[in-house]
Amino acid sequence: MTVIEAKSLDLTFQTNDGPVHALKGVDLQIGKGEFVSFIGPSGCGKTTFLRCVAALETPTGGSLTVNGMSPDEARRSRAYGYVFQAAGLYPWRTIARNIKLPLEIMGFDRAAQERRVDEVLKLVDLEGFGSKYPWQLSGGMQQRASIARALAFDADILLMDEPFGALDEIVRDHLNEQLLALWARTEKTIGFVTHSIPEAVYLSTKIVVMSPRPGRITDIIDSPLPKERPLDIRDTPEFLAVAHRVREGLRAGHAYD
């Protein structure tokens, strides 16, 4: 079943230096329960594509549907949760109240709010941290709290824009493992933007390689790796073969220029 479908999607920004083609002719289908990574250098449009899906940007051409609806309608039906690069927790709210933020705005009743906060805190392994303030948590824990916030209203799609980009590699490995476990448990569809080839290959069932000027897709790789992935899968020949193909895709798009 297709959840996100883009057909010859264009997005051109008008700037003082002339038009910038952030996305050009992007065709992509994402099925239910897939874990799709978008990889490419800065300016390749990977974040822009995710923002289009979230209706934070409006495409200038082509078509884009989310759950068969327009991105705007999909947002209103709470189709997705969005995780930004920074955790962006409110410093004046405890972790639990941060997670309640979308629930308050969407009008969940109090009992439902409490129940969901408990559920998602368990999902991201932050039980017992609900009454802490964000500054009392490490960067990795804060980002997990922000994932919990995105999961709180039980959207089917999780859009993540370089969520672990600001964290060190050790924390990142740990979070990647946890994210896979979370994905396996919840069967969500995940769109994940990253700069890191190992991260993309480790996490994804589908890797979308993009290149800039204009932002476009140069390769779509369906990963042959099994769903069960311990961290040391990264040393297997299958893993390295996929990573190699990603690198080739980036090179073909002149991404290293």
């Binding site: 934070l56 947002r75 409110y90 004046w92 933020l101 705005i105």
Partner: peptide, 27 residues
């Protein structure tokens, strides 16, 4: 902008943006 985008993804009203984000941030 990220904070404002986040509230936008929740479909927050202008009033919600004011009371839940702008006002507490200004304290």
């Amino acid at each position: 902008q990220m904070q404002l985008d986040l509230l936008k993804t929740y479909g927050a009203s202008g009033a919600a943006v004011f009371w839940k984000l702008r006002l507490p941030s200004s304290v």
